[in-house]
Design a protein around this nucleic acid. Structure first.
Lengths: 155, 155
DNA sequence: TATTGTTATACTCTATAACTATA
DNA sequence: TATAGTTATAGAGTATAACAATA
């Protein structure tokens, strides 16, 4: 039995860092009258030409039945539109409206302005290194996830 | 207008990495029949002598009205108990039951076993670098959060 | 008067399964 | 038959405000 690798502190750090981000961004999101799920969708649609609910669900991890309701509410707020998918009669394209685009552009610069100050202490190299570190970490987690999914039953 | 700092990809990576972890651990949590909020409470109570709902809410970021219901459901599952707070007639102490303790101890080693495989590809140096990177990132975020919290009103 | 915790309200998210329409 | 998306259902989380009991 090899000694256990010290990844628990790393995970704890990951969770704390994410929570710090969540706490930070929650104020902005809430001030827009968006729920986390709705914001997730808006953020995913930002800077795209739109996508079908299937792709949207895959990216946001929202299941299709749930996504219908989330998109409905964004529709009611006038932030997204549903367009027919020209290449598939069953499909549709969900896309930000002009107003949705404005909201998208509004929240990220707002984040940016605040965060820019905070991040000004980190060099470009540090940012890159952090990003790379997170990427490795994510890959490890995704492998574990795939494995867990495959070998399921270790309940 | 200065060029935008390149921390957006870093944040996106942070979110994705966290989501990978979430997705990974969700299986274990779900297999225990616990919701994320319930697991949050159990994990917070783990390795403690219990605490009052006020503290519990502060740590889990669950508001008091919501927390009552979450604790109710954990109570129904026999995982926690409500004890009177000897030092405050209004208060109570929420504490894991023996069964709750067992669940707590059960889920964390289970995480470790799976994750150990995933992390075996990362060297100790890589783990340390990742942790350091996250720590810097978190400090930046917490500074931003503190600033946002202080200057609030930019809603 | 302030604080702890419960209750009531209303809305959103969530997964799942059954269903319609198109491929 | 398979897939895209909707609808129905039931449960849980969420914030908020009003309330009781205690400090």
């Amino acid at each position: 039995m090899t000694s256990p690798p010290p990844f628990l502190p790393l995970l704890r750090e990951l969770v704390r860092t994410y929570q710090a981000f969540e706490r930070y961004s929650a104020a902005h999101v809430q001030s827009l009258g968006l729920t986390p799920a709705q914001f997730d969708v808006v953020a995913t649609l930002g800077n795209t030409e739109g996508m079908n609910p299937k792709q949207l669900g895959d990216k946001t991890l929202i299941t299709k039945g749930t996504l219908t309701g989330v998109v409905d509410r964004l529709l009611a707020k006038g932030l997204v539109q549903r367009l027919p998918d020209p290449s598939d009669g069953r499909g549709q394209i969900v896309r930000l409206t002009t107003r949705g685009q404005k909201v998208f552009e509004q929240v990220f610069p707002a984040h940016g302005a605040h965060l820019a100050q905070a991040f000004s202490k980190l060099s470009a190299a540090e940012l890159a290194a952090s990003q790379q570190a997170l990427h490795s970490l994510r890959q490890a987690l995704e492998q574990a996830g795939a494995r867990a999914g495959t070998q399921e039953g270790a309940t």
